[in-house]
């Protein structure tokens, strides 16, 4: 069995644990704790969430969810080694944290390392179409600065079809 690694990194409240849980075929290893700040939900990831999904009979994908805040960068180092793909979960908010996205791209260097990368927008049900367009444009500007061509797609972390669509996209990118 070939084993591949997918890193799922995202800011506070973006839905990393939910995405790992939705995709995983095994009971996921979760490291959520109660948040002491208002992030729109009760729990937040502070360690590595782990799950696994079979891509085909010969290939399994390990799902590693890690916090996106810079102070957890020691965890990025742990998961960044020999990753097959990278999902950056981006939570829709009025004031999107582009600096953090920039920082993540600088660290993981998906362009230079030729790592298939997808920017997944979560919680967009809180936004209008125009706001989503503006956000995508802002994200594309950051991607361009990193000379990275990566799809920016909407995801519902709770919906299996939506989460699987992310994997299809990554698989498609990896073939080019």
């Amino acid at each position: 069995m070939e084993y591949k690694k997918l890193a799922i990194v995202g800011e506070l409240g973006a839905g990393k644990t939910q995405l790992v849980s939705t995709l995983s075929e095994i009971s996921p290893f979760e490291t959520e704790v109660e948040s002491t700040i208002d992030i729109g939900k009760q729990f937040t990831t502070v360690g590595i969430d782990y799950g696994r999904i079979r891509l085909d009979e010969q290939t399994a994908l390990g799902l590693y969810g890690v916090p996106g805040q810079e102070r957890y960068s020691f965890l990025w180092e742990m998961v960044s080694k020999s990753i097959w793909g990278l999902v950056i979960l981006f939570k829709y908010a009025e004031h999107a944290d582009m600096a953090n996205l920039d920082h993540l791209l600088s660290f993981f260097e998906p362009g230079q390392r030729k790592t298939p990368c997808v920017i997944a927008l979560s919680h967009i049900e809180n936004a209008g179409a125009e706001q989503v367009e503006d956000l995508v444009e802002e994200i594309q500007t950051v991607l361009k600065a990193h000379q990275l061509v990566a799809p920016v797609i909407e995801v519902d972390n709770r919906a299996k079809d939506s989460a699987i669509n992310l994997l299809y996209t990554l698989t498609a990118i990896s073939q080019y």
Binding site: E34, V46, G47, I48, R71, F74, L75
Partner: peptide, 29 residues
């Protein structure tokens, strides 16, 4: 969830409080 309340470190240790807090919360979880 990894926010430092108070920390003490010797000069030789030289660790940043927020990084210690992040590591501690991760390892505990």
């Amino acid at each position: 969830d990894g926010f430092s309340i108070k920390s003490f470190a010797t000069k030789e240790m030289g660790m940043e409080a927020d990084k210690v807090a992040a590591i501690a919360s991760s390892l505990c979880a």
